[in-house]
Design a protein around this nucleic acid. Structure first.
Length: 832
RNA sequence: GCCAGCGUGGCGGAAUUGGUAGACGCGUCAGACUCAAAAUCUGAUGGGGUUCGCUCCGUGUCGGUUCGAGUCCGACCGCUGGUACCA
């Protein structure tokens, strides 16, 4: 056990016992009672219901819906939700009609694995977990509209996930193809490249192997350019944008044709550096490249070539990319290509440093100006021709594109790289041997798994008609079996879907010709249901459409979407892809789904390591709620540090937040309705309003809270404060610690809940009257400070500085060269 | 390797456009209350020196620009995240 974890249980945090008498009842801060009371009040009165088509301006705040795992809520969930919880509560107070929904992304492997282990149907487990999660969310006091909850595993929901798939299929954006896939022998599941990073299965850590399979793909690459384009209007951190851009990975260049001399074939290559074409001294093709079989008759060392290809296929993706940094390859004896510009005959190699999956699977190798080609050329003693002057190609490849000048390149000589790229493209287009080309790193989205707990893909395979979509009126294609029967979920043999062994599911009739046919047995990946859930919140019960168009029109786009940094690429891009597609077919009214995207930082364990069960440093937020209260937890989790930065959890830090709440509680006894506050306090209050307001908008929740603390400390210095000042404080506090704010608001005699009470506004005239401290420096060092009125003239400030005794002391015997005056800030006297 | 972010007290972290470095919180120390402890309240708390007036040093390292640099520029070191023979 770690220090932090046990501290919560062992070091008893004594609640300050402190009584007042109000109607003879002793009152102390008792979060348990207060929180239960207000949660009941809010949730039973529908205080957080979003109203369709209200006249108020709408605000849609969205947090990533959770996977309802058996272990319940994690502190990470609390951090992820609390930001927009604050914003949503503030928006309601500002008069907005707020949609702040929650739901459950409940399909997925952990539930299914647990189901098989415990012999309980995943439906049952899911329902139980959702129940636990909902209860926990309410105990944190989150202001979600629980009437709009969605569950991706509900047939009423996945009917529409399947419907969207059918639309994609009809537009040829969903297709089946045989390819080598990453396969996890332990999970018996096909994995995407992202799920098998480092050659290990994302879920279980088993080594991934390559397997040939029929796989469903969604043609996301067709939307690559638009996904990139749409980022321009997304309000988000530069790094969030960058990560998406990198993931899409657009590169611009040319595709150029190299004729093969001995056979009636040619090799197309993609290059971003057409300017180096004269320097292409050999070619490299991927081991899987079709040329090998097409021109097999001409290859003299076919056995060696095939052996190399076989070896390459045996290597996992991991070995190919991570381990074998040394370049290997085999020359295709008997085949040569012609460099279309230099007219030279150049050798062709197969080598596994060229990937079939990127570009054309073939490259023109320019060893003088590409580090990889250089290494390969050195290993095999191939010629290196310098075509860009500026580096030292005896030592290394010269890859600079800014400084270099073209040489040894005929009509390109003397040009800069940029000019040469343009001119080469022009030339190859004229000659008909190439064209401008764009390539994307992003690949089509592998869209299937061989597991039970997912949306069945609504396709029927008919011997006569081929792949036939299930008619829309027959949706949803429901998962077979009852929630009593768990035999159905056991994985099939050889990585087949469990559904494949359920005859009643598989055997059907073709919707087109009526003959016997088989259902598709693969299910969709977990990303499916989460790619459109935010649309469903606008109209969760609709059985005629995924959501009513007018409701979508009212609520979209999502004004602010917060979630994990880890979802910025996959989930956000996938959902943007679906959204753009739905826009194209007229189902949704906006081109892009999200206006603004933020991402919270990780909460680390008290030891500073990533929280994990194996390290035993996991903090359970519900224990904190039980011990200190939900208000303390909410406050602490935001106060802990910069919202977007990772920060370790600290048990003593939690105590500090509780202490602050105790001080606010105590402040109620200083409230006197007849009292008038001094100006200094009012100025402080208005500074606090301004600061808290701005900080919330800028996700600087930690400094917002510190400003509230500063004000409370200041207010506690007074014997009495006015009722209005206290009310204002409570309204500022309300988004953060709503239970306490509501309770105190009631205790001082108010009957209206704070949910829709106006958020305080700043009295600017008071801020004008604030005094400022002017710093007096001599040669850049602080020597004195004076308090003056705001916005004094420069001359007056200079005068004040020169009259200061301290300034005189440090300038004595020196000549004053100049005086720098920064209004409201400082005066710097430069003397020598 | 490439891209992005970060580096500030014992700790979490604050510092508009370059303008009082260390807000706020934790911890620690001292005092008050108590028989005592806890809780609470008050005060101190970057380091060195000090005649207790002050003074010098200090934001990863080195250099630069500036009246003035945590902030800007250049070079480097370290950490975190993303990505990777991407042609």
């Amino acid at each position: 056990m770690n220090k932090g974890g046990t501290a919560a249980q062992s070091s008893l945090f004594e609640i300050r016992t402190f009584f007042i008498h109000k109607g003879g009842i002793p009152m102390k801060y008792n979060p348990k009672a207060i929180e239960a009371k207000w949660q009941k009040h809010w949730y039973e009165s529908g205080a957080f219901s979003a109203e369709d088509f209200s006249d108020k301006p709408k605000y849609y705040s969205l947090v990533e819906f959770p996977y309802p795992s058996g272990s319940g809520m994690h502190v990470g969930h609390i951090r992820a939700y609390t930001s927009l919880e604050i914003v949503s509560r503030k928006r309601r107070m500002e008069g907005y009609n707020v949609l702040f929904p929650i739901g459950f992304d409940a399909f997925g492997l952990p539930t299914e694995n647990y189901a098989m282990q415990q012999k309980i149907h995943p439906r049952k487990i899911t329902d139980e977990n959702i129940g636990i999660f909902t209860d926990q969310l309410k105990r944190a006091g989150f202001s979600f509209d629980f009437d709009r909850t969605v569950d991706t595993t509900d047939p009423g929901y996945y009917k529409w996930t399947q419907w969207i798939f059918l639309q994609l299929f009809k537009k040829d954006l969903a297709y089946r193809s045989k390819t080598h896939v990453n396969y996890c022998p332990s999970c018996k599941v096909v994995l995407s490249n992202e799920e098998s990073q480092g050659g290990k299965c994302d879920r279980c850590g088993e080594t991934v192997v390559q397997k040939e399979k029929d796989v469903w793909f969604l043609k996301i690459t067709e939307y690559a350019d638009r996904l990139l384009e749409g980022l321009k209007d997304l309000d988000t951190l530069p790094r969030i944008k960058r990560e998406q851009e990198n993931w899409i990975g657009k590169s611009v260049g040319a595709e150029i044709v190299f004729p093969v001399n001995e056979a009636d074939e040619s090799l197309n290559v993609f290059t971003t550096r057409p300017d180096t074409l004269f320097g292409a001294t050999f070619m490299v093709i991927a081991p899987e490249h079709p040329l090998i079989e097409k021109a097999a008759d001409h290859i003299k060392n076919l056995d060696a070539v095939r052996q190399y290809r076989k070896d390459a296929q045996l290597k996992s993706e991991f070995e190919r990319t991570e381990l074998s940094k040394d370049k290997t390859g085999v020359k295709l004896e008997g085949l040569t290509a012609k460099n279309p510009l230099s007219d030279e005959d150049i050798p062709i190699f197969i080598a596994d440093y060229v990937m079939m999956g990127y570009g054309t699977g073939a490259i023109m190798a320019v060893p003088a100006h590409d580090a990889r080609d250089y290494e390969f050329a050195k290993t095999y003693g191939l010629s290196v021709r310098e075509v860009i002057q500026g580096g030292d190609i005896e030592k290394e490849a010269y890859t600079d594109v800014e400084e270099g000048v073209l040489i040894n390149s005929g009509f390109l000589n003397g040009l800069s790289v940029a000019e040469a790229i343009e001119k080469t493209i022009e030339h190859v287009v004229e000659e008909g041997i190439g064209e401008k080309a764009v390539n994307f790193k992003m690949k089509d989205w592998a869209f299937n798994r061989q597991r039970y707990w997912g949306e069945p893909i609504p396709i029927v395979h008919c011997d006569a008609c081929g792949m036939v979509p299930v008619p829309e009126e027959d949706l949803p294609v429901e998962l077979p079996g009852t929630d009593q029967d768990i035999r159905n979920i056991e994985p099939g043999a050889e990585g087949e879907s469990p559904l494949a062994s359920i005859d009643a599911f598989v055997h059907t009739t073709c919707p087109k010709c009526g003959k016997a046919a088989r259902r598709e047995t693969d299910t969709m990946p977990q990303w499916a249901g989460s790619s459109w859930y935010f649309l469903r919140y606008t109209d969760p019960g609709n059985d005629e459409a995924l959501a009513d168009y007018e409701k979508l029109q009212y609520w979209l786009p999502v004004d602010w979407y917060n979630g994990g940094m880890e979802h910025v690429t996959r989930h956000v891009i996938y959902s943007r892809f679906w959204h753009q597609f739905l826009y194209d077919i007229g189902v949704v009214p906006t081109k892009e789904p999200y206006k603004k995207r933020t991402a919270q930082g990780l909460i680390l364990g008290p030891d500073g390591d990533k929280m994990s069960k194996s390290k035993g440093n996991v903090v359970n937020p519900m224990e904190t709620i039980d011990f200190y209260g939900a208000d303390t937890l909410r406050l602490y989790i935001l106060f802990i540090g910069d919202y977007e930065q990772p920060t370790p959890w600290s048990e003593t830090g939690v105590k500090g937040s509780r202490r602050f709440l105790e001080r606010v509680w105590k402040l109620q006894h200083n409230v006197d309705a007849a009292h008038e506050d001094d100006k200094a306090l009012l100025i402080e209050l208005n500074k606090t309003i301004k600061g808290v307001d701005e900080d919330i908008e800028n996700t600087k929740f930690n400094t917002a809270i510190s400003k509230l603390m500063t004000f409370v400390n200041e207010a506690l210095q007074r014997e009495k404060i006015s009722k209005t000042t206290f009310e204002t404080l409570l309204r500022l506090l309300n988004p953060f610690a709503p239970h306490m704010a509501e309770e105190l608001n009631e205790l001082i005699g108010n009957t209206q809940s704070l949910v829709h009470a106006p958020f305080p506004t700043v009295d600017e005239t008071l801020l004008e009257e604030e005094k400022v401290t002017i710093v007096l420096q001599v040669n850049g060092k602080v020597r004195d400070k004076v308090d003056t009125a705001k916005d004094q003239e420069k001359d007056a400030l200079e005068q004040i500085a020169l009259e200061s005794e301290r300034v005189k002391q440090f300038t004595e015997g020196k000549t004053i060269h100049k005086v720098i005056v920064v209004p409201n800030k400082l005066v710097n006297v430069v003397a020598k």
